[in-house]
Every structure is written in C-alpha cells, then in structure tokens.
Amino acid sequence: MALRLFCLIFVRLRWHADLVRRCWIFKRRSQGRPPTRACVRTLVFRLARENPLWGYRRIAGELASLGCRVGASTVWLILKKAGIDPAPRRVGPTWSGFLRVNVRHLRRVLAAYETRFNEHRPHRSLGQAAPLRALPDPAEGDVKVIRRDRLGGLIHENAQVAQGG
C-alpha cells in the first residue's frame, strides 16, 4: 500500500510539472550582450590598423559619423579580444624610451629655461626684478620693444631698444 501511494504521489507531481511546462511557455532569452556583427568588427580592425594613433573613443566617433552606432566600450572590447592595444600610440616609443633617447636635449632645454628664469624673468615678489639683476631704470616716452623667441618659441623674450633721434 505504501509503495502504491508513493508511486501515485510521484505520478501526480510529474503530471503537474508537465502541465506547468505546457502552460507557461515563453521564449528564453540569451544572457549577456548580443554579439557584434562581423562587418562592424572588420571595420573596427581596419580603422585601428590604418590609424594607429587613434584610440577606441576616436574609432567609435568615426563609426558614428559613418552611421554605425557602436559604443566606445564595445570598440575597446573588440580590440582587446583581438589582442590589439586599445589605447592611442599603439606604435612608437614609450614615454620612458623617449626620455632616455632625448636626455641631452632635455637637459639643454632645462638649463636654458633656468638661465632665463634667473636672469630675465621678472619676479613679482622682488618688485619686477629678476633674481640675479638690479632693478631696471624706468623708461620714458615711446618705447620700442623687440621680441625674441627662445627654445623654438616656447619662451618669448622682450627687450627695450634705444631710440635714435
């Protein structure tokens, strides 16, 4: 009797499970982000290869201007999965490599800047006098000023010129 009751319970549970499965049918959704189309991935690879200085945001912007709405994070993910560095300057020296190669030039520029700072640049705390010079005499009348560029235009040096008369 107990075995028969036990089997009857399992049969009824099975029937209930089948009934629920038939009544509550819904389309199962795939989880996660939908896959990116192959044509978009190909276009991302092409833009990254032809423009090595562009980052993933610039590539996403160019795709948007072409009418393809792709987020920057999607472009980043596509490039990362392909093993391409998604940051700008994928080709070229690193910052530490640049500094190692140009150390002599950088020291020369720094020395020129230091000289300019200590000899020519006016300091507000010293009454507009450079640290290593005395205060200049005040100018009277029209003053002609000559501008010289130093360090390739990085620093502009202005000097007064004597008037001929």
Score class of each variant (00 low, 15 high):
8 L>P: 01
9 I>G: 06
11 V>C: 07
14 R>G: 12
15 W>Q: 15
16 H>S: 08
18 D>F: 12
18 D>M: 12
19 L>Y: 11
19 L>A: 11
21 R>M: 04
22 R>P: 00
23 C>Q: 13
23 C>F: 06
23 C>A: 10
24 W>E: 09
26 F>T: 08
26 F>I: 06
26 F>D: 04
27 K>H: 09
28 R>S: 13
29 R>T: 11
29 R>Q: 12
30 S>F: 08
30 S>W: 05
30 S>K: 14
31 Q>Y: 09
32 G>I: 08
32 G>Q: 13
33 R>V: 08
36 T>F: 05
36 T>W: 02
36 T>G: 00
37 R>W: 04
40 V>Y: 15
40 V>I: 15
40 V>C: 10
41 R>D: 09
41 R>N: 10
41 R>Y: 00
42 T>W: 02
43 L>W: 01
45 F>H: 15
46 R>C: 03
46 R>N: 12
47 L>E: 13
48 A>S: 14
48 A>H: 05
48 A>G: 09
50 E>T: 06
51 N>A: 12
52 P>S: 11
53 L>G: 14
53 L>E: 15
54 W>E: 08
55 G>R: 06
55 G>I: 09
55 G>W: 03
55 G>M: 05
56 Y>S: 12
56 Y>L: 08
59 I>S: 06
59 I>W: 10
59 I>H: 07
60 A>Q: 05
62 E>Y: 05
62 E>F: 04
65 S>Q: 14
65 S>G: 06
66 L>W: 06
67 G>Q: 09
67 G>L: 07
67 G>F: 12
68 C>N: 03
71 G>V: 00
72 A>L: 00
73 S>Y: 10
74 T>L: 05
75 V>F: 05
75 V>A: 02
75 V>K: 08
76 W>C: 10
77 L>E: 14
77 L>T: 10
78 I>A: 05
80 K>C: 08
85 D>I: 07
86 P>L: 04
88 P>K: 02
88 P>F: 00
88 P>T: 03
88 P>R: 00
88 P>Y: 00
89 R>K: 07
89 R>I: 00
89 R>N: 10
89 R>M: 02
91 V>L: 11
91 V>P: 00
94 T>M: 02
95 W>P: 00
95 W>H: 02
97 G>E: 15
97 G>K: 00
97 G>R: 01
99 L>D: 02
100 R>I: 00
100 R>T: 01
100 R>K: 12
101 V>Y: 03
102 N>R: 10
103 V>L: 10
